[in-house]
Design a binder for these strands. Structure first.
Lengths: 163, 163
DNA sequence: ATTCTTGCAAAGCCTTTGCAACTGC
DNA sequence: GCAGTTGCAAAGGCTTTGCAAGAAT
């Protein structure tokens, strides 16, 4: 995955999450499983779905249960630590906190997600909202197709097929 | 819904669908239920999900079964008559054939979808794909937020609450 | 102590599928 | 008549929930 610039943050993800929990109308508790999840998720920068997270964490002997993972992921999204991306077939999560605003190219062949930044997009979104008197909440933007690697693989295969 | 320019098409949706069916590796059949669905769907221009379509068609005494609706919707998407839009909570379909390329603003409050066209978006997409040597397949772009109507309603409510 | 979180099993929701009866071509 | 379509019931995949036991504050 090509890396985008990190963003300066003054709190660790865990601190930010605790702050979020504490600031709820009904203060919520910070549990061991939640701590493990936050630490695990922010120890690597990648896109993952609920199942992958559960499998990987179990493989590393963390104690995680499916319902709790779903419940915690929802809180992490609310807290602004994660962003949820709906891919149609799959729903994946990625870091939101401490990471630059960006969008994705999604490869239909290999499933990889390539991140990109485009300042023109923000401008465009602002203009459209202005036009329609629409109060912007957010956006989802995914460009689908075939990534460079898969394209190369295809080309090669096609060449071989012709022989 | 604000209307975008229609596009010139030489075939009716039904004709186009029959052509698609006939051109399959294993030619497929055009049935009464499929005809009803195509006619019903293209008799109005709106966004709908599978359930809404079934309910409405049943209400008008068309005979439709859930599995067949799903099977036919898939074919209509393949045939290029419909476009499938994943809204996270809901999956909706809209006319693709005979209708200008566009994207959507989605109101979180009332669920309405406002269509818009932005030529700058195509340019941007082309540039990003160029950069990444990515072969474009398509894109999904949804701007979320609160539409003008809902915003007005909220304003009014807020004013009333203050009295 | 109180109140929130957990984990199991079960339910929900939307979508797909196996299969026998049916129907377009 | 053959091959594809239909509709029922059932299964699937992912996500959520009721509730009793357990943990955080």
């Amino acid at each position: 995955m090509n890396m985008l610039p990190a963003v300066e943050v003054s709190q660790t993800p865990e601190e930010k999450f605790r702050e979020y929990l504490a600031s709820r109308p009904k203060p919520q508790r910070f549990t061991n499983q939640q701590r493990d999840m936050v630490q695990y998720i922010f120890s690597k920068h990648n896109h993952f779905d609920a199942d992958e997270l559960i499998d990987e964490m179990k493989r590393e002997n963390f104690q995680v249960s499916r319902p709790t993972v779903y419940r915690t992921l929802k809180k992490l999204v609310d807290a602004g630590l994660l962003r949820k991306i709906n891919l149609g077939k799959r729903t994946v999560y990625e870091h939101d906190y401490g990471y630059a605003q960006h969008d994705h190219l999604y490869c239909d062949q290999c499933g990889s997600m390539i991140e990109f930044q485009e300042s023109r997009l923000d401008e465009l979104i602002r203009d459209v909202c202005q036009d329609q008197q629409f109060q912007l909440g957010g956006h989802s933007f995914i460009i689908r197709g075939t990534c460079a690697d898969c394209n190369r693989a295809r080309m090669t295969k096609r060449r071989l097929d012709l022989v």
